[in-house]
Write a protein that binds this DNA or RNA. Structure first.
Lengths: 123, 123
DNA sequence: AGGATATTTAACCTAAAAGCTAATATTTAA
DNA sequence: TTAAATATTAGCTTTTAGGTTAAATATCCT
């Protein structure tokens, strides 16, 4: 199993996979449920092969996976995988911690209302 | 102010800015507090101009901003901005909602699904 | 001021990414 | 099985992103 805590290079791969607008839109579409390549392709103005290539990138970076069997008999649908998104969320949580730290520093700083020299700031 | 709900193209810009490993590392570094370009540059094996360019991308996409005044007299430090990360978190929340939907669908569908292991079909 | 340091801009180069058309599997249906 | 459709791989072209060095600009320190 992949119980590993998602190293930095994992995050990089996830971000790289999501960085393309077409691929990000595909992810949005897949939120409505698993789809076939053709269904996804219909939503874009690019060629079939281009769609296939984007799906390949998403698949190779484990953001999506092929479903073996669909409910109504149609095979090879793509579905979102949870892990990468959870990993990215975890990283964002860490980054967000910055502002809580920032906030406490500001609170401490605001009490003294310390006088720091310059008067004219504000751009 | 920017009270807009962060459209898809905003998310695309944020993701594009974060997609480069160097820039993502810079963000990680800036979690420890605002820094000067030089401090950041020291952590990478690339040239100063390359660092400057990455900072420019982060700045143009509003992930960081220049600080006007530092505590100890040093100007032009870069600091993280909260909004883009919050926007990205919000988008991820939406995506994550997929699995809760998935889960309820699965629960409803839960029993018969054991029909998968066919024999030699793969080449 | 004037020089040393730090940072950004300019011009150029290379490599990778995304697109297309055509060809090659695959799958579904007759 | 053949035929139609669906989807992926192959080969090629164009665009874009990241890197470099050299020059310009801004900042800091006597």
């Amino acid at each position: 199993m992949s119980a590993a805590p998602a190293g930095p290079e994992d995050i990089d791969r996830i971000l790289a996979a999501l960085a393309d607008p077409t691929r990000r839109r595909m992810v949005d579409m897949l939120r409505d449920g698993p789809m076939r390549a053709g269904e996804l392709a219909a939503a874009f103005d690019i060629s079939g092969p281009a769609v296939s290539r984007h799906l390949r990138v998403l698949r190779e970076n484990a953001l999506i996976e092929e479903e073996e069997e669909g409910d109504d008999r149609r095979l090879r649908v793509y579905r979102l995988r949870a892990a990468p998104f959870a990993d990215l969320q975890a990283w964002l949580e860490e980054v967000a911690a910055f502002w809580t730290a920032q906030l406490s520093a500001f609170k401490k700083h605001a009490e003294g209302k310390s006088r720091k020299g310059k008067g004219a700031k504000r751009k």
